[in-house]
Amino acid sequence: MSIPFRNALKVLPLMAASFSLQAATLFTDENAPVLGAEPPVAVQPAPQNTANAQLLLQIQQLQQEMQMLRNVVEQQQQMISQLQKDGRDRYLDADRRLSDLSKQVSDLRDNKVVASEPDDSSSVLPVVSGTAKEAYQSAYALVKQQKFDQAISAYQGFIKNYPDSSLLPNAYYWLGELYMVKNLTQEAERVFLTVVETYPKSRKVPDASYKLGLVYARYGQMDKAKAQMNEVKKQFPKSTASKLADQFLDAQQK
């Protein structure tokens, strides 16, 4: 212990080391001639020690001041980068909304009536919050990539996370489609019924009604299926679903 410690004493604070020289010489050199009568003393009448102490305290103060300023600089740096980020996010958000809008406009111009094609939902439905819409779209992207299992969880997550979204009936509808693909017919029936009964005004109702017909057919309940298809034709005569119902009924005739 004693050896390393003594050695360690050597590595002194820097100011300390330089002043230690001064002090050590002072006390080992008692017989040194007093040269104080020379100009240096006359020029500098203030006691050196007090001056040193003053300087020390001033340095302390300066250090404190520096720290304070550093704090201000760092805070502002942080604030600036936050503002930059906010600005960028805001721009990207506005940009995305604009391009969405222009797409909707051109879609409307091209199609006049919106067909119940898979990707209609995003263009037809009105204001949807950015995140809900993104979640919906990423779920739908999975459908397109035929990643059905992932798509199912994505839609389930969407339904759970955005219970107030205007895209909810669409999400249910697509979930039903996916269940049909996975042969989960009962689950499919449940969600198609949800669309029809809970969201009667949704644009997905004709499609969901038609799909219910297909569900009954899968059960082998052909009479019920036909009745459902006729109901679709009656209720939504101009819809794509009506045409599809026609095709179904035709196929049954043969």
Binding site: Q64, Q67, M68, R70, N71, E74
Partner: peptide, 10 residues
């Protein structure tokens, strides 16, 4: 390496 510093005062 994360650390605590008083270089900005506190």
């Amino acid at each position: 390496i994360m650390f605590t510093s008083s270089r900005s005062g506190g």
